[in-house]
Design a binder for these strands. Sequence first.
DNA 1: CAAGGTATTTTGATAGCTCAAAATGAGTTT
DNA 2: AAACTCATTTTGAGCTATCAAAATACCTTG
Lengths: 222, 222
Amino acid sequence: MASSTVENYLKHLLLAEEGAAGGLVPMGALAGALAVVPGTVTTMVKALADDGLVEHRPRHGVRLTAEGRRVALNVLRKHRLVETFLVKVLKMDWAEVHVEAEQLEHALSDNVLDRLDALLGRPETDPHGDPIPSAQGRLSAEVHATLASCATGRPLRVVRVTEQSKEFLHFVDASGLAPGATVRVTERNLAAGLVTVKKSAGRPLALSLTAAGKILVAPARG
Amino acid sequence: MASSTVENYLKHLLLAEEGAAGGLVPMGALAGALAVVPGTVTTMVKALADDGLVEHRPRHGVRLTAEGRRVALNVLRKHRLVETFLVKVLKMDWAEVHVEAEQLEHALSDNVLDRLDALLGRPETDPHGDPIPSAQGRLSAEVHATLASCATGRPLRVVRVTEQSKEFLHFVDASGLAPGATVRVTERNLAAGLVTVKKSAGRPLALSLTAAGKILVAPARG
DNA sequence: CAAGGTATTTTGATAGCTCAAAATGAGTTT
DNA sequence: AAACTCATTTTGAGCTATCAAAATACCTTG
Ligand SMILES: [Mn+2]
Ligand SMILES: [Mn+2]
Ligand SMILES: [Mn+2]
Ligand SMILES: [Mn+2]
């Protein structure tokens, strides 16, 4: 069995590979994500490579092997299903569940996981709209526009929020921009770095481009 | 935060203190419970003593301090509530939940714990009849007779099974002796080491004294 | 191409937890 | 009392995961 440390390395690697040039993740990026110093990552990555979980291209980066990806997807599945359970069944605040899941993802057996999945009705996304990998290790790779990149004027449905900090999630929720919400982008000012959105009922709301880029949307009633 | 290792040492110490002479647990007993060699326990116990979690009487044994007991009770509470959740909500086999809880007890926050407790309706015992410590750290110390020690002839209610091995629990369940069941001891043969019990409906069942001693009972309809 | 700057790797240490095997202590037995 | 037995402790070592700081490699810039 992989230790929690190994599971975390693999999971963060999986997350970092999305949108990394050639899927190769630089050591520094992984170090940042895991909050350890780069030297530690170099050492660990060599050990993971020896175990066949990653491929290490010295001075270029790391990438998951098929086996490493399998393990990583299973951890990610646990993480997101646990988050869903905590919100849906235990009624926890969606801003708090990430830290809890960070521990529980390593303590849940596959057996418990599957029962949890059944109890929740085999959900496809977690409370933040993040896709839940299937038991077979399939992960939806749907690409979405963000409030920073989408067409203006049209009605949109929020489908996902790609940041888990408490502050940001509270803000998003308080602004009525949680997944499922319907909004329109009324104005986008690149120079000022500002996006203005409007919900059917309510006054317009201003967001920075950075914040807007973390809120993924799809055309409403499509 | 105490590591899982420390939590396990403290929890097993709490369990071993019940019925240990003067509450002092011999190092060897703890080593056996934790499945490590005695030398390891000596080393760890010294570290725990430095942290004020246990009191070490060299060459005599260990005992929890008030602080160590507090931590241990919290872990035990998590363990038993998780077991209850797994059986009641996820419908798992009562023989399988112990191993799962052994991991989850270290990954659950106090916050999640309390919500689980509420969801379950603040149960007082787990699926095996083991008392669940309260959030304030109170643990019921009720003393029960066993099928090996109780009066014969009288109707009895099974209240607790004090062993968690899969095999034993499956046997108990298959024999209809799970907590809640009503039985009578029809015969006890000390020489042969045999106890015979009878359920209202069904043929008599023979048990070894050792097995009978693990099934705790109380007078029925008392 | 030499100099700089930055990411990465290497080196040397440490903390936590564990084992094997030798040493020690404290009764018991003879 | 000397010998024996058994639990406990000590010693020496290893593994995993981490850091600080020095060394190195690979750009980029002048
Ligand atoms: Mn984690
Ligand atoms: Mn999530
Ligand atoms: Mn445990
Ligand atoms: Mn139990």
